[in-house]
Design a protein around this nucleic acid. Structure first.
Length: 489
DNA sequence: ACGGTCACG
DNA sequence: ACGTACGTGACCGTT
């Protein structure tokens, strides 16, 4: 069967339509070495771009075609006695599979019209679809981990986690121990250690594929409302880094072959640069044009002191304000992140807006657009619908306002790295490099690189990533190299 | 199945 | 007076 399908599926002139083609392409290549070419439409990605909430095939068929489809559980059962598709009699399996193909094809024309009507066709065809085979390739590449190192860490953590306090950490225990000040830190430490142990140190080695000896994540291109890609099983985008123990976990992510190295490329302050572009705020534009430390530059303006006189405390507050802006800042939010009270937070916000008037205008504009059109959009016109923006419930309304402020920024940053990924993989293929793109973490890409390709990859990255999308400020990219993800310079 | 918690950008 | 920063996914204990 595979051999008769192979020439058809691998022929790029025979155009393919799929529903979550990423999954089928990944399975076909992993199981049969079959590399699907000519992907022309994906109904799951299309439905997601159109803002559909339920984007499964069955849900879409019902929603858009009024067709009730047989659910897979009708064939394979549920719970403990669930079986697998290969045990289903051919006539049943055949009818089920044909229904999937039929509905996908019927949805295609409907969704295509929808994309064209909303001005999303270009984004779909030129940005999202070309990313599919890139993500498939990254999933198949996988990442190598140092299993013995994680096993050793697990044993050490097991020792450290032996009940040194003698108390459990559930809510009742905390209540009973309230006031016993010194124990609080121990509880927090316990929680941190057990979190890292269960979620990473113990879980990751269990997920290594025995056939490849590597860890294969899944990237979801149709899950995040802002347009980001997410990662699951394992989530490769939340590997620890912020504590020393976290960095230890990162050191277990290594190249898969002796002599190879990991190369990491990250966009520096990409969301604030996007904000500078969208808002055209003069202060922000100028700071990035001069390539200044953006938080220090912000502190200098907000506190009215020269850059040279900005103290670490001033910079820390400015950093909170800058991040706050990206999230739709509130006096309470500022107070939670600093030792300021909400009144002082409000004062700082006022000063901030006075110094960055373009940012206030952007925020007001985003809320206004959401109210007027019912959606906001990114640079490449991806939409997020905001039904709650006119809610009479002000908590819901304010939440929608913060989402309206954040989405164009986060979403545009996602578009930048997605385009960079497609162009990088194209160039790597054209040159015939052995280097592999393996991990994406929102503003960062990780590559596995043989020593003789280090300089080629470095220049390729520094050419493609900063030039992915032209903004009113430069895009800055930092490249690091090292023997593990936790040990890069 | 769900909320609390906590890991990341 | 309300309940509060944006976007995710995994684990755990409780239901």
């Amino acid at each position: 069967m595979a051999s008769s399908l192979k020439p058809l599926l691998e022929d790029p002139s025979l155009l393919k339509t799929g529903h979550n083609a990423n999954f089928d392409m990944t399975v076909l290549e992993a199981a049969w070495g079959l590399r699907v070419a000519g992907l022309q439409f994906d109904t799951m990605i299309a439905a997601h771009l159109l803002g559909k909430k339920a984007i499964g095939l069955k849900a879409l068929a019902l929603d858009l075609l009024g067709q009730e489809m047989t659910h897979i559980t009708a064939l394979i059962g549920t719970g403990a006695k669930q079986t697998t598709m290969d045990n289903v009699p051919i006539p049943e399996a055949s009818a089920y599979a044909c229904a999937d193909a039929d509905m996908t094809w019927r949805l295609r024309s409907l969704l295509k019209d929808g994309l064209e009507k909303d001005g999303l066709w270009k984004l779909f065809a030129e940005e999202e679809l070309p990313l599919v085979p890139v993500l498939v390739r990254m999933q198949l590449n996988g990442v190598a981990i140092n299993v013995p190192l994680l096993r050793q860490m697990s044993q050490e953590l097991h020792q450290r986690l032996q009940p040194k306090t003698g108390y459990s950490t559930d809510a009742a225990s905390l209540e009973a121990l309230k006031g016993a000040h010194p124990v609080i830190d121990l509880i927090l430490e316990y929680r941190q250690l057990s979190k890292l142990k269960s979620t990473y140190v113990d879980a990751l080695p269990e997920m290594v594929n025995p056939r490849t000896g590597r860890l294969h994540t899944s990237y979801n291109q149709a899950g995040v409302v802002t347009g980001r890609v997410s990662s699951s099983e394992p989530n490769i985008q939340n590997i620890p880094i912020r504590t020393e123990l976290g960095r230890q976990v990162r050191k277990a992510f290594v190249p898969g072959q002796p002599g190879w190295l990991l190369m990491a490329a990250d966009y520096s302050q990409v969301e604030l640069r996007v904000l500078a572009h969208i808002s055209r705020d003069e202060g922000l534009l100028a700071a990035f044009a001069r390539d200044e430390d953006i938080h220090a530059a912000t502190a200098s303006l907000v506190y009215g002191v020269p850059l040279s006189e900005v103290t670490p405390d001033m910079r820390r507050i400015a950093k909170v304000l800058n991040f706050g802006v990206l999230y739709g800042l509130s006096p309470y939010g500022i107070s939670q992140q600093t030792d300021l009270n909400p009144e002082q937070g409000a004062q700082f916000i006022e000063t901030y807006f006075a110094k960055f008037p373009g940012i206030r205008q952007y925020i007001e504009g985003a809320k206004e657009q959401a109210r007027r059109l019912g959606y906001v959009e990114t640079l490449l016109r991806r939409r997020r619908y905001m039904p709650e923006i006119n809610s009479s419930n002000f908590v819901a309304r304010q939440a929608a306002e913060r989402e309206a402020i954040n989405m164009p920024i986060q979403g545009t940053a996602a578009e930048i790295i997605k385009r960079a990924m497609v162009r990088l993989q194209e160039r790597m293929d054209a040159i015939g490099l052995r280097s592999m793109m393996t991990i994406q973490v929102h503003d960062e890409l990780i590559f596995e690189v043989p020593p003789e390709e280090l300089e080629t990859m470095r220049s390729l990255i520094l050419e493609v990533m900063p030039g992915a999308i032209q903004l009113a400020v430069p895009l800055k990219v930092a490249v690091k190299v090292g023997p593990s993800w936790g040990d890069l310079e």
